[in-house]
Design a protein around this nucleic acid. Structure first.
Lengths: 174, 174
DNA sequence: ACGATAACTGACCGATCGGACAGTTCTGTC
DNA sequence: GACAGAACTGTCCGATCGGTCAGTTATCGT
């Protein structure tokens, strides 16, 4: 039941935003009462927090995987990791895209700026030949964000498109 | 007075989203009563619509300027136009970033998907050597969107960074 | 000075929101 | 079948929202 709620919530939040989705909307989608939601979750924010819990862990893992790497190897691993996460957490990314600054008061929610900063920090001085260009990483973040826009392309095609696009952005040969 | 209201509104909408900004918030920022806002504008939506009026016109102008062009010239003009607009309408872009799908019922508001589609349509078959790559244009849209995230960089530096980044994304030499 | 009109406001309304809570139903154990 | 606890619900509440409206104040041409 918790899984059903989370499933409906992530879909509705991604479609209409956090503020644009009421508890009643989720309850109707699940097929239960609003009060039932608040039995399984302490409040509306708790639903949101739980949706983003795995992302924080995965991002930490990605940063750790990047830590020992350097140079072009680090850049390629970063691209692959970001593309992979953006595809697997598409709805969550879309929620961030919709509500990015409206929920800064949620301490356990990933902040897009923090994510970007962490990525840039993790790669400063490691990308070959040139310092990481601001626009390049912004474009990579753009890919990360716009992936969520629901382009109707098979995931594998999308993956290679995104990867080669990001490589090109960062001046790497694909 | 109308100008003061629009000025506060675009700033608050960009900071907290359309739904996250109440009429009282705007009124407090302006320094007048909520009822005064609704004297100058028929409703909250009308404020939003007026904020986006110039963008639609400018985008039409951009598309017309692209129409007679082709090949690399078209791509470069598109990049320059998008970068220019994203810098000049930074707050409006950020509002779209925050509320992109939550306001599909606003007929006179630019839809990010439409903007992307128009740009891609305007350039399909015109970019040299290769078809426009999905990821490349998604990244360009990403730049367009993430420009609004308020990176503290002078506009001229930003402009050249964004332009060279977009060129790299599209496989053009800068 | 005065009347007309624009500009503005306080008070109020209906709707909706997140959330609280007492009470009911379901489910499994002995 | 009796009991316990989990699962669930209907109903209510305070707060807040967008919007209305009668009434007040400021502005300006004459």
């Amino acid at each position: 039941m918790r899984a059903d709620i989370l499933d409906s919530a992530v879909r509705l939040f991604a479609a209409h935003g956090f503020r644009g989705t009421s508890l009643q909307d989720i309850a109707s989608d699940v097929g239960c009462s609003k009060a039932s939601l608040l039995y399984h979750f302490t409040n509306k924010d708790a639903i949101l927090s739980e949706l983003f819990a795995p992302i924080g862990q995965e991002f930490e893992t990605l940063l750790q995987r990047l830590a020992p790497l350097s140079g072009e190897e680090a850049a390629r691993a970063a691209v692959a990791g970001v593309v992979d996460m953006s595809l697997r957490f598409r709805n969550q990314v879309k929620i961030l895209l919709l509500d990015v600054d409206t929920m800064l008061d949620h301490p356990d929610l990933p902040c897009v700026d923090d994510v970007t900063e962490s990525l840039v920090d993790a790669l400063v001085g490691r990308v070959p030949e040139q310092e990481p260009r601001v626009a390049g990483w912004m474009a990579l973040l753009g890919i990360f964000l716009t992936t969520a826009r629901g382009v109707s392309i098979p995931d594998e095609t999308m993956r290679s498109e995104l990867t080669s696009g990001a490589f090109r952005t960062l001046g790497l040969s694909s």
